[in-house]
Write a protein that binds this DNA or RNA. Structure first.
Lengths: 186, 186
DNA sequence: ACCTGAACACCGTTCAAGT
DNA sequence: ACCTGAACACCGTTCAAGT
């Protein structure tokens, strides 16, 4: 994986994303990444202006994958059926829960960085709009659709948080029950 | 606030907790804390073995406040009525949401620290047990009580996450609706 | 166009010495 | 019992110089 001495900008972004997932913001460090990539840390500054610029690039990727890409994938499999959309979204998020963990680090960051906060806000808004639309298409009135969308979004997140420490065992049935509870008619 | 040159162990813990809340794990740094407390960083190592030992002490406080203390307070005001317990818990968590934000940093940490993970697990278990008990006392069957407890816990967390970036405005009505939805009978 | 190597600043940690 | 001050290691950043 580190035969050629030359690294592209994308090589740095990929390595940084993995570091963020596995070790949090603290692990997104120039020197260790340089060692992992087999170059000196000085070379990093040809590709990026700073450690912050690298973080920006990582966040760009996260934002696109966590909204546009996942929605396209879910729509492709749901064939315009809102209930199938919601169940597909649930399953995919569940499958992605290890990747989703970078979100914890990002949301923690958002608390003290205005620019990151704006990004997270955009991502939440797009995701909530998608959920709200599915519940409306199921026939729920606006107020209840909004409430269910929020419960669903919270459940998806709560699950990522709890799985991060508790693991995935023995919760599948309870989760299924919660999802069914959310999908019942008004 | 910094007249006497002598600092107690608790002075360091308090300052570190504030730093964790406001700036995340990255801000829990010995040298800046020493400057803020008006002593040299060398003096820190009389009170604590390491930066990690300080973090441990901060987590001890968080664990007790986030489980025992809040449950005692809610029970005192709810007078044995499970619905009042749940609404009181909701309101208090909501009021504490800025303090709760330290949880984001802690849960992020838990992903790569076994000991922190065990703590978070204990905290989640104690909180879930409390919620489950209230729903059982409302008369729900075990499976549904478990599902509602998980939805409630997720909603409390989702709300902290979303408020961290979106602020508290204009969501009160939707949240009230979601809570009412969770409190309906089987 | 991309990288090295040396330099400097910041902070965690140690420890002998002070009061 | 609690703190200082100097030392060292690690990593972010800069930059002149190499290929």
């Amino acid at each position: 994986m580190a035969t050629s001495p030359r690294r592209s900008r994308d090589d740095w972004i990929r390595a940084a994303t993995v570091a963020l997932r596995d070790g949090g913001v603290d692990a997104l460090r120039v020197e260790p990444l340089a060692v992992a990539l087999g170059v000196t840390k000085g070379s990093f500054y040809w590709h990026f202006a700073s450690r912050d610029a690298l973080l920006e690039a990582v966040l760009d990727t996260w934002e696109e994958v966590g909204t546009g890409a996942i929605i396209v994938a879910v729509d492709a499999e749901a064939e315009d059926d809102p209930e199938r959309s919601l169940r597909a979204l649930w399953r995919r998020t569940h499958e992605l829960s290890s990747e989703m963990r970078a979100e914890l680090a990002i949301r923690d960051l958002a608390q003290r960085d205005e620019a990151v906060r704006d990004r997270v806000r955009r991502v939440d808004d797009r995701r909530m709009a998608y959920l709200r639309r599915q519940y409306r298409r199921l026939g729920l009135p606006a107020g209840l659709a909004e409430a269910r969308a929020m419960l669903t979004y919270s459940l998806l997140f709560g699950n990522v948080l709890v799985e991060a420490t508790h693991g995935r065992t023995s919760r599948a049935r309870v989760l299924q029950r919660a999802i069914d509870d959310l999908l019942r008619p008004a």
